[in-house]
Design a binder for these strands. Structure first.
Length: 206
DNA sequence: AAATTCAGCAACCGCACGTAT
DNA sequence: CATACGTGCGGTTGCTGAATT
């Protein structure tokens, strides 16, 4: 997977968004106004046909960007932060079964997005696994010396993390405690957008 | 108190796949 | 059947705030 050189995306994106040239596609963080527009539009017209959403709503965003914003943030049933112990375990188990099929895993966790699960996995679990495997390596050096199989699979490009569930759930009971996360204070609450929905008297979505 | 490092997360990109023409 | 287009997915980047030095 050669993706190391290919993206410098967000910095450039932010700059262009600041310049705000006419007719160009906006990138980077969403503003509250944009959220408001998208939210309202989807309430009135429903999800799907994202390219049309992007055009018809007047947003200078790509359809992809609109979709992502809706799915990961604006959607009313989306739950953010505070991944419970049960959810953590479920993620581990599903990942052992499905590999990096984040959207599949997300389907088993109502309100969770593939992006959130993916981030959770990378930041919390993968990091933990790395530490564990380092510890294990040290331990092996001391004990036997020649066993190559570490028992840790850090997930290659397509493989499944066969042993991660086991090792994680073991470790979890002893050392791994995911810090309860605050939902991002930097962002306006989706609830702030809800009154619009009610004002419109429009209930046919959701 | 200031500088530096680390961790978390939103959002981008490219690719793959499905459907329409 | 071939091509175009729209959508979804997974990997990656880089900003930001928190923690540490």
């Amino acid at each position: 997977m050669e993706t190391t050189m290919k993206k410098k995306g967000r910095v450039k994106a932010t700059i262009t968004s600041q310049k705000e040239e006419e007719g160009t596609v906006r990138k980077g963080p969403w503003t509250m106004e944009e959220d408001f527009i998208l939210f309202n539009y989807i309430l009135n017209h429903g999800e799907g046909l994202w390219n049309s959403v992007a055009k018809a709503s007047g947003l200078k965003r790509t359809g992809k960007s609109c979709r992502l914003r809706w799915l990961n943030y604006l959607r009313p049933d989306v739950r953010r932060g505070n991944i419970t112990t049960e959810e953590q375990l479920l993620i581990i188990q599903l990942h052992a079964k499905l590999g990096n099929r984040w959207s599949k895993i997300a389907k088993h966790l109502p309100g969770r997005t593939d992006n959130e699960i993916k981030n959770f996995w990378r930041t919390k679990i993968q990091r933990h696994m790395k530490v564990s495997s380092e510890n294990m390596m040290n331990h092996q050096h001391h004990c036997s010396g020649n066993s190559q199989s570490s028992g840790m699979t850090t997930q290659g490009s397509s493989g499944k993390a066969i042993d991660t569930a086991e090792s994680f759930s073991q470790a979890k009971t002893t050392t791994f405690n995911v810090v309860e996360q605050q939902s991002n204070e930097n962002y306006w609450n989706v609830g702030d957008l809800w009154p619009v929905h009610l004002l419109n008297g429009d209930h046919h979505v959701i």
